[in-house]
């Protein structure tokens, strides 16, 4: 029987103060150092807030405008030349990456790079322990949400997997990786992810109705699969640890404590651990509500 654990992943909403600082930075009225200092303060607060969460992706990605941009800016052969595009079925938008090749990393993702009009990096800010990198999964999220020009989908995916290995193998100091899939797998071939599953402790967040098929024939499996509540049993046949999307990142209604308690019963039926998490990253919510959802997760 496993334990109930908690996972917080992806972009967390900016505080009002950070949002205003970014606005001033964009207008040129404050410098890069002030933005960095504000992020450092915000990060401290954030760690304090989620100190009881078991696994947190490099928090809190405050300097990510969207889930594709930092890696698009960091990779040779990818530009942000595409149109402003609606992100899935939401009211948020991203500048579509144009992929002509997938070369090498243009800069160290852990360094203070300044690129184009983007707020200052680093892309990741590692902690000593208990953290994971957050990466938009190559096959669907990155490639299907980008525009390819002169490169096949397969080559783009392979290239991105290499980039992800460079990211993870740099100064991260962690084996933990959260791969986020924004679109449901259909008949997509996941074998390209096999090396990542082999070398790292991957938590794979999938969308839609879960199917075991794409995982058949893989030599390695992710460490944890995050699925809807109704798919826990199927996911547990593929992966020892399962994550459940118990909190809604698209609604301000707060989940009741009873629902959270029921998850303990679910965990008792599993051989591995049960990670409680959200159905999307929390950037779709007002900051105050996102903080309350984190508190609910912490109370588990």
């Amino acid at each position: 029987m496993g334990q109930v654990r908690s996972l917080l992943y992806g972009i967390f909403p900016r505080s009002e103060q950070l949002r205003l600082t970014y606005g001033r930075w964009e207008r040129g009225s404050v410098g890069t150092d002030e933005v960095k200092e504000r992020i450092r303060e915000e990060k401290e607060k954030f760690y304090g807030m989620c100190r009881n969460i078991d696994l947190v992706t490099d928090p809190p990605l405050f300097n990510w405008h969207d889930i594709l941009r930092p890696l698009a800016l960091a990779t040779d052969g990818i530009t942000l030349g595409g149109p402003l595009t609606r992100y899935l079925e939401t009211n948020t938008f991203y500048r579509e990456p144009l992929v002509s090749k997938v070369g090498k990393l243009r800069f160290d993702p852990y360094s203070d790079a300044e690129v184009e009009e983007n707020p200052p990096m680093p892309i990741y800010m590692p902690r000593d322990s208990g953290w994971a990198t957050f990466l938009p999964s190559p096959p669907l999220t990155f490639v299907k949400l980008s525009r390819l020009h002169g490169i096949s989908e397969g080559d783009a995916v392979k290239g991105l997997v290499d980039i992800y290995r460079q990211v993870q193998g740099g100064k991260s100091g962690t084996k933990n990786m959260v791969l986020f899939e924004a679109l449901p797998y259909g008949k997509d071939d996941l074998t390209v992810l096999d090396p990542l599953f082999r070398d790292y402790k991957v938590t794979l967040v999938v969308q839609g109705r879960f199917s075991e098929k794409p995982f058949q024939g893989l030599h390695n499996r992710p460490d944890t699969l995050v699925v809807d509540l109704s798919d826990i049993e199927a996911a547990s046949r593929v992966c020892r640890n399962v994550g459940v999307k118990a909190l809604d990142a698209h609604n301000t209604r707060l989940e009741g404590k009873d629902a959270m308690r029921n998850l303990e019963d679910t965990a008792s039926t599993l051989s591995g651990d049960l990670y409680v998490t959200t159905n999307d990253y929390l950037d779709f919510l007002p900051r105050g509500i996102a903080e309350k959802k984190v508190a609910i997760m912490e109370a588990i």
Partner: peptide, 15 residues
């Protein structure tokens, strides 16, 4: 109203 949510980049609206 509970606060602002992002529309794109650093643009937000009160949802």
């Amino acid at each position: 109203f509970y606060g602002l949510v992002r529309s794109f980049d650093n643009r937000y609206y009160r949802k």
